[in-house]
Each structure stands twice: as structure tokens, then as C-alpha cells.
Design a protein around this nucleic acid. Structure first.
Length: 227
DNA sequence: CCAGACGTTGTT
DNA sequence: GTCTGG
DNA sequence: CCAGACGTTGTT
DNA sequence: GTCTGG
């Protein structure tokens, strides 16, 4: 699955990689946890241009009575996303790119867990396959939230964990964002991508969701040589 | 018909 | 909102 | 994902 | 054990 990730690259790198004109200032996020505000790109039906959009991580479907459901909907399995009531509408017309440049997975080692950090070999930022929703709270205020699609782990990630987030190829960003593309077979064909990943163990400081320092993504000194 | 769920992961 | 279960 | 709370009454 | 918060 994907329960933590990072976005620490420059505004310039984001503007270039995702072809958006204006990227607002934001603080580097070494340790992004569910419920936090995250950077995304979406394309609305009314808007022709893709736009940078901040969202809350944890999908709150438009029909939800309570925003707490968002804590459970941080991931959507690609194998079932077109069937599940919570995701069925969003997969058709409310897809987004969730901006990241690395992600964490935890490996169970007996009683303890060891976090690992994954990134692209070229260190470039990338887009997770995401879905978004609008939700109005009881005071009528709009909340925009999102979830990350997951798939079976590839060869690299499987050494640590059974599931991994879906990283889209830059060549399909436009189609993924196009809300008029509603054919589920075509949509699901877009997620076929298996980029080479670099992985190393990191400090368990990252376990604490409020810890947001550069050493989150540094290789652990006493590296566990199992990979 | 109404009521209740709507999710993933990991562990047992 | 929409589907499933009773 | 992991960490941390999980409760009420009454008094300060 | 289960839920909430980050």
C-alpha cells in the first residue's frame, strides 16, 4: 500500500515535469501522512488547463455523512476500483496526479518494523495515480480530498512489502487527467508502468507523522543488508 | 420496502 | 448516491 | 502508514 | 482491540 511519501523537489522541477504554469510556494514535505494537505494536479470538466490543487489525503465521497471515512480511504486497489461504490464515480471522471518524489513502505521484522524509502533512479518527481472528490461539510464548506491507487508490488518493492502505489508514466498524464475519457478498460490500461526504483532503509524517525526533517530520506547507517 | 454499508492492509 | 442484505 | 488515546466527576 | 489524529 502507500501510507507515507515525500515531495521535496523544487517548484521548477514540478512545473517542468507536470507542465503547469503556476506552482505556489510550499514547504518541502519529507514525511507526508494521511489527512495532510498534499499537492496534486487535476483537470476539471469546465477548465481546459490542468491546474495545481491542494487536497486532503483520504478520500471523502460526496455522499459521506462524516469526514472520518477519509481515514480509511487513503488507498484504492486498482483490481477493484471500478466496482467499489466509494470509487466508481471518481475513477471515471475525477482522476488526478498526486505529486511525489519518493514513498515509504514498512517491512515487518518479527516484532519490529523497518521503514524503507523508494525513489526513481533518476530522482525525478512523479505522479501517483489518484482520484479526487468534493465534499461539503455541515457548515457548507467545501473539502477536496483524494486517494492513491495501489497495485501488487513489483520485484523491487516485493522485498519489503506486498503492495505499492501506482506511479504513472509521464506519457499518460494527459489521458489520466482527461475527465472526458470514461472507458474503464482504457483508463486501466494507462496504469501499466513499471519504472526502476532505488530503495534503502531509513531511520524509524519517519514513523512519527509529525517528524518532517531531511534525515527522513537519508540512508540508514547500519543498513540492513537483506536487499 | 428500509437499514446499513460504502475501504485497505495485515494478521489470525 | 447506490448497492446489498434482510 | 504509525502513534497515541481510549473516561467521568469534581475541584483548582 | 479499535478508533482518531497527523
Amino acid at each position: 500500500m502507500c501510507g507515507r511519501f515525500s515531495l521535496v523537489c523544487s517548484k521548477t522541477a514540478i512545473a517542468q515535469t507536470f507542465n503547469v504554469s503556476s506552482v505556489p510556494d510550499f514547504i518541502p514535505q519529507y514525511n507526508i501522512a494521511p489527512a495532510q494537505t498534499i499537492a496534486t494536479i487535476r483537470q476539471d470538466l469546465e477548465q481546459q488547463e490542468r491546474q495545481f490543487q491542494l487536497m486532503h489525503w483520504g478520500l471523502i465521497p460526496h455522499w459521506a455523512k462524516d469526514e472520518k471515512i477519509g481515514y480509511k480511504l487513503i488507498n484504492a486497489r486498482v483490481e477493484t476500483v471500478t466496482e467499489k461504490p466509494a470509487f466508481r464515480q471518481a475513477i471515471r471522471s475525477q482522476r488526478c496526479l498526486i505529486l511525489a518524489d519518493g514513498f515509504y513502505e514498512w517491512q515487518h521484522q518479527g516484532k519490529t518494523k523497518q521503514p524503507y524509502y523508494f525513489q526513481l533512479e533518476n530522482h525525478q518527481p512523479f505522479g501517483f495515480a489518484g482520484l479526487w472528490e468534493r465534499w461539503n461539510n455541515p457548515n457548507g464548506e467545501e473539502n477536496v480530498s483524494c486517494t492513491i491507487l495501489t497495485q501488487a508490488a513489483n520485484e523491487t518493492v516485493r522485498l519489503v512489502h506486498e503492495r505499492m502505489p501506482i506511479i504513472l508514466s509521464p506519457t499518460v498524464y494527459s489521458q489520466w487527467l482527461d475527465p472526458t475519457l470514461k472507458d474503464s478498460e482504457t483508463i486501466l490500461s494507462l496504469v501499466q508502468h513499471n519504472p526502476n526504483l532505488r530503495v534503502y532503509p531509513v531511520s524509524s524517525k519517519v514513523n512519527r507523522a509529525t517528524y518532517n526533517q531531511p534525515d527522513c530520506i537519508l540512508p540508514l547507517d547500519e543498513a540492513v543488508e537483506i536487499l
